[in-house]
Nucleic acid binder design. Structure first.
Lengths: 338, 338
DNA sequence: CTGAAAGCGCTAACAC
DNA sequence: GTGTTAGCGCTTTCAG
């Protein structure tokens, strides 16, 4: 490594290396990018060039290479947050799977801000991403149309869209499972079998709608009517969920369906403030899995989404290159506490 | 948006737009990248070009632009994981701060695998990142030397290195605070004041060493000797921590210093298996903060690292462009449970 | 106010 | 086996 070059601005190029190795830039290029076998370049020259490149600390200019190449192999992903076990795991596994498939992952986080989502999508398109997977986007169809205009394939993950293939959890079945578990545990632990509460998300959101439908259907099957005041859908944020919970009667014995761990953070703050002993009259379950939240007192179980299967389905969709179809539903796993 | 163009391969270029607007490519370029004010291009032409670009769904080719430009404005970050509240928050805030400073963030996750770390660093260098922030890297100095050879600035965050500026938490003080809290709570709740246990991390790791030093110093100040078997440092992974805990005597009353939430996942699995009632003889605290873990029974408190301050310090270092100095220490916040 | 032209570093024909 | 050459799409003098 030539440390003296460090601040000199100009980086080593294939021309520099060609000069040092007394050969041509194209030979260096093909040797360094691995296409030299089919060019039948001598092993001797190849070794020499590689040795020099190494010594000079050469790093190919990806921008130049990508500009010339036909394919970029870049796959982009947009997530709303990283700081959450669900989306964190999505981003992490997305990168791993992309690399395993020989693709170059670029993921970016857009804080559920519509303007940032659009900006990020445009950036990814500018970077010649061949495909964009959007998770939990506020307006998936808008992103899809941006992508389409640029000839970039797009996939909706977790939240479905209309104009691009979607892969989502089976929210309805998962919600039914969780609701049933809540009923069982409320009866077993509290002798309580009244209608449950639902908190978190918003009705305009597809996932919330499906989960609420599952929640209500189980009530119906039991001949129970859910009062309006039991359904609190003020958005996902922890603050909004905490605020919404204040409408609940103090000391009320209850069973609570929490829609997402983000909302659960607010709920948990709420029942901490409610005071120690009182939380005994509360059982809750949550859609989304978090290993620590799973062990909190009063938690009857969590719905774990099958991230690996969803991502593999998404990548398969990319490779198939098909037109929009029915959303692919991936089953969830109910993880009941003891 | 011309949907028909979607699959046609070729994307719209400034030449296409120049033709449509009956002007030159250079005019289009400067209009579209905002440098047209100083070129004194007529507002009329500018509006026309922008309108056409919009209509055509034009997206500049970042590769071409970056290839020509002097600066890339790209800042890279390497994190070991996303699926963890600490690193998730780091990645999320890194992106936000970078954008706020007019930089383009690219973050990638390397699973604590040395080979992946090196590969990712090389990729980032190839992408012309102007600087690389490495968090929790297994071999920060190796990454620094790669960067230096390419004239890329590098910063170590969280884990210090020798050859590049570092920003780290004040692990020693944080560990002292947490150890003191553990002693207090063990006495208060369990009437226990014997030497505590330490679990998680490895001794070769700087942060673990500093935290253990704080832990031991507080013992020394109390005239207590920590038996070797109380210090379990098998690495950070949950599995290793869980395994290590098996060496602890069943039913032993104890106070436990857990080094990182990753290790805490293993610890928590261990005491779940230990059975309900028995966990009452256990108090623990953890270095790193997680909002759900903070509320787990037996948890006396968590050390929250000041991510925002660390990142701002790192960005300031980038802008200052200074040579390696003493690591910058950022204080942590002890969040005690009730 | 605007256009022509050179060239960023690399790749892929095509020549030899 | 190896070198020459022509761009990829954009930015930026420089000359009008």
């Amino acid at each position: 490594m030539r440390d003296d070059r460090a601040d000199a601005g100009k980086r080593t190029t294939i021309y520099d290396i060609a000069k040092l190795a007394e050969t041509s830039a194209s030979a260096v290029s093909s040797i360094l990018n691995g296409s030299w076998r089919k060019r039948r370049i001598s092993k001797r020259l190849a070794d020499k060039v590689i040795e020099i490149a190494d010594r000079e600390g050469y790093a190919a200019n990806a921008q130049a290479s990508l500009l010339r190449r036909a394919r970029s192999n870049i796959v982009g992903m947009i997530v709303p947050k990283y700081d959450n076990r669900y989306f964190g795991a999505i981003a992490e596994q997305f990168e791993a799977i992309a690399r395993a498939r020989g693709l170059f992952p670029v993921v970016t986080c857009t804080q559920r801000e519509p303007a940032l989502e659009v900006e990020a999508a445009k950036e990814l398109i500018s970077f010649q991403a061949e495909c964009l997977i959007a998770t939990g986007a506020t307006d998936p169809d808008h992103l899809t149309s941006l992508c389409r205009a640029a000839g970039v394939r797009s996939i909706n993950l977790d939240l479905p869209g209309h104009d691009a293939p979607s892969v989502i959890s089976d929210n309805y079945s998962g919600a039914r499972d969780l609701t049933r578990l809540l009923f069982d545990r409320c009866e077993r632990d509290l002798g309580f079998s009244g209608p449950l509460h639902f908190v978190g998300g918003r009705l305009s959101d597809h996932n919330t709608a499906q989960r609420l439908r599952g929640f209500l259907d189980i009530h119906r099957e039991r001949g129970l009517v859910v009062p309006d005041r039991h359904v609190l859908v003020p958005g996902y944020s922890a603050d909004k969920a905490e605020e919404a919970m204040k409408s609940v009667l103090a000391n009320e014995t209850m069973g609570l369906f929490v829609n997402s761990t983000i909302s659960l953070e607010g709920v948990v703050r709420w029942f901490q403030n409610r005071g120690e002993g009182r939380s005994l009259g509360l059982r809750y379950g949550c859609f989304d899995y978090d290993p620590f939240a799973a062990l909190l007192p009063g938690n009857v179980g969590m719905v774990q989404q099958d991230i690996a299967s969803m991502l593999h389905a998404a990548f398969d969709l990319i490779e198939a290159g098909d037109r929009p179809t029915e959303p692919i539903l991936v089953p969830c796993l109910l993880r009941a506490s003891l």
